[in-house]
Design a protein around this nucleic acid. Structure first.
Lengths: 219, 219
DNA sequence: ATGTTCGATGAAAACTTGTTCACTGTCAAG
DNA sequence: CTTGACAGTGAACAAGTTTTCATCGAACAT
C-alpha cells in the first residue's frame, strides 16, 4: 500500500470525521472550503490519489458518495512497542472494520466477507481522543477466560500507547494474540489470563497492534 | 409522534438500509427507481412527509444528505406482552439509538445528548430478520450480575417475540427494567439474576420493549 | 539542461440532484 | 356535494456537484 501524503491523510480523516458527525459525506466543495483551496480541482486531485492508493472508493458521478476501503495494517517491522499517536478533531464514533479473528496467526482479513466487515461503535468518547484506526476482532480460543473474554466474543481494539496491565492485540514473533501486557522493570512480556497458557516472552520482536478497550458478547 | 404510512415507513427503511449497505444516502432518483415511481415528485412528497413527521431531517440543497432523527418509542399501553413483527429486506447492520439508561423508571431519552445518541451494531446477521428498531441501553444497577450484566454495561436491545428465558427490557407496572422473562404455564413474570432481588410479578401490565441480544463492556 | 511528477489554479463543461409547477385521481369527513 | 388530505404523474428548472481542460511553478531525478 502506497503511503499517503500528509494532505491526503488529512483530507481522508476529515471525510471520515464528516461522515461520523453528519452521517453524510462532504462534497468536494465542502473539502475545498475546509482546506481553503482556491480550486475544486485541488480536492479532485487528492481524491483521485486516495482512490489510486486504494484507501477510498468513489462512486463515479454520484454526489457525496464514497466508500472507505479498510486499510489493512501490515505491522511486520521489528520495533519494540511502537506507536505513532495522532490527535486532531474529537470524534465520538468511528467506523470500525471487522478484521477477522484473533488467536494464532495473523488476523485473517478474508473473513470480513460482506456482512460483518464494518460497524460503528463508541470509542473513547470520554477522553475526546481520536481513535483513527480501531478495529474489531472475533476472539478464538480461551486464553483470556480469566479476564472474561471468551471464544466467540468480539473485542474492539484501538491504537494507543499501551500501559502496563492493558489487554493488547500483539504481534509477537510473527504471531498475533490477545494477551495482557506486563511491564516489569525493563522486561516486557505478554501474559495469558488462563493458567493453562504460558507467558509469552518476546524473543525477536513485539509489536502492539492496539489496546482492547471493549468486549461485545452475544447473550 | 404522528404515525408513518406504510409507504413512508418503507422508504425510510430503504434509506436506512442503503446507508448501512453503501455508507452513503440514496438520491431521490435512487428511491424513485427502487419503488418504481414514475416521478421524482412522488419521492419528494414522501420525504417532505417524513421530515414533517419528524423522523427524517433533510439538509436543504445538499445532495444525498440526511439525518435520521431517533424515533422515541412511547410504549405506555396496557397490552400483555405484545409485539408486531415486521419482516422485509434482510439487513445486516442497523442504526441503533442510544436510548439512555435502564434500571428503575422509564429510560430517560434525555441522556442521549449528542455524542452517544446513535451507533451501529451488527444485528441478527445470521437470521436475516430485520430488527427495525433496535436500541442501546446503558445498564444501571446490579440486578443482573448473575447473568454477567453489570452496572455500566451497554446492552443492545432488539424487538422481537420474547421466548422463555430471554433477557428482556420490560415495562412492568409503569417501570422499565432489564430482567429475565419466565413463562411458567400460564404465569408470566420477570426474574432478576441476583438473589437479592425479588421476582417481578406483573399486576396490571407487562410490555416487552425488546430482547437483550448483546452486551458490550468496557475492559 | 531536461523531462517528470506533484500540488495547485481558474474556468468551463457536463452531469446529478433537489425543487417547483400544473394537473389528476382517490378516499373519507363534513 | 364539496372540501381537504393524500398519493401520484410529467415536465421543466435551478442549484449542487463532479469532472475535464489548459496552464503553472517547484521539487527532483536523469
Amino acid at each position: 500500500m502506497e503511503e499517503l501524503t500528509k494532505k491526503q491523510r488529512a483530507i481522508l480523516d476529515y471525510m471520515k470525521a464528516h461522515v461520523s458527525e453528519h452521517t453524510y459525506w462532504p462534497s468536494i466543495r465542502d473539502i475545498q472550503a475546509k482546506f481553503r483551496f482556491a480550486s475544486t480541482n485541488a480536492v479532485f486531485g487528492h481524491l483521485q490519489a486516495l482512490e489510486r492508493k486504494g484507501v477510498l472508493q468513489r462512486i463515479p458521478g454520484a454526489a457525496r458518495a464514497y466508500k472507505i476501503v479498510p486499510e489493512v495494517r501490515s505491522d511486520t517491522s521489528e520495533t519494540v512497542i511502537r506507536y505513532e499517536g495522532p490527535g486532531d478533531d474529537a470524534i465520538a464514533f468511528e467506523s470500525v472494520k471487522f478484521a477477522g479473528s484473533i488467536a494464532a496467526g495473523f488476523p485473517d482479513y478474508t473473513e470480513s466477507s460482506g456482512v460483518l466487515d464494518s460497524m460503528q461503535v463508541p470509542i473513547s468518547a470520554s477522553s475526546r481522543r481520536r481513535a483513527p484506526e480501531a478495529f474489531a476482532l472475533r476472539v478464538r480460543g480461551d486464553s483470556m477466560i480469566d479476564a472474561d473474554i471468551n471464544d466467540g466474543d468480539t473485542v474492539i481494539v484501538e491504537p494507543g500507547m499501551p500501559k502496563h496491565g492493558d489487554i493488547v492485540a500483539a504481534l509477537i514473533d510473527g504471531e498475533t494474540t490477545l494477551k495482557r501486557l506486563i511491564k516489569q522493570g525493563s522486561k516486557v512480556y505478554l501474559k495469558a489470563e488462563n493458567q493453562n497458557y504460558p507467558d509469552l516472552i518476546p524473543t525477536t520482536s513485539l509489536t502492539i497492534q492496539g489496546i482492547a478497550k471493549s468486549v461485545m458478547k452475544r447473550i
